[in-house]
Amino acid sequence: MPEQTGREPLADAFFQFRMQAPEEIVVPGAPAAHRTVRRRRTARVSAVAALTALVLAAGGYSAASLSAPAPADPATPSAAPSPTVSAGPTLGPQQLRRLSVSALERLGMKPGKVRRGAVYGSVDDATDRSGYSLGTAEQPLPTGRYTLFVICRGVGRIAVTWQADSGRGTIDAPCVDPAERFPPTQHVEVWLHVPGLITLSVSGDDVARARSGFAVMVNDPLMTIAETALQRTGGSGLGGGVGMVTGETENVHPDAAAGTYVLQLTCAGTGTIKATLKMGSVSAVKTVRCSEQPSRVTITITSKRVATLKVLMSRDPKAPQVAVADTLWMK
Score class of each variant (00 low, 15 high):
Gln95Leu: 11
Ser100Phe: 02
Ser130Asp: 15
Val114Tyr: 04
Arg129Trp: 09
Leu107Ala: 13
Ala159Arg: 01
Gly154Val: 01
Gly154Lys: 04
Leu96His: 13
Leu99Met: 05
Thr147Tyr: 13
Gln95Phe: 14
Gln95Ser: 11
Val119His: 04
Pro111Met: 13
Pro140Trp: 03
Val150Asp: 03
Leu141Val: 01
Pro111Asn: 10
Val123Ile: 14
Gly121Pro: 03
Leu141Asp: 01
Thr143Cys: 08
Lys113Met: 14
Leu148Gln: 07
Gly144Asn: 05
Gly92Val: 09
Arg145Phe: 07
Arg115Trp: 06
Ala137Phe: 13
Met109Asp: 06
Leu96Lys: 08
Glu105Met: 14
Tyr132Thr: 00
Asp128Arg: 07
Gly112Val: 13
Val160Glu: 06
Leu141Met: 13
Ile151Ser: 10
Gly108His: 02
Gly144Ser: 07
Tyr146Glu: 02
Thr143Pro: 02
Arg106Ala: 15
Gln139Val: 15
Ser100Pro: 04
Gln94Pro: 00
Leu104Ser: 04
Gly112Asn: 13
Gly108Thr: 01
Ala137Gln: 14
Gly117Val: 03
Leu91Trp: 04
Val123Lys: 15
Gln95Gly: 06
Ala137Arg: 11
Leu134Val: 03
Val114Met: 10
Pro142Gln: 03
Gly135Val: 15
Ser130Tyr: 08
Leu104Gln: 07
Pro142Phe: 00
Phe149Glu: 04
Met109Ser: 11
Gly156Lys: 01
Tyr120Glu: 10
Ile151Leu: 07
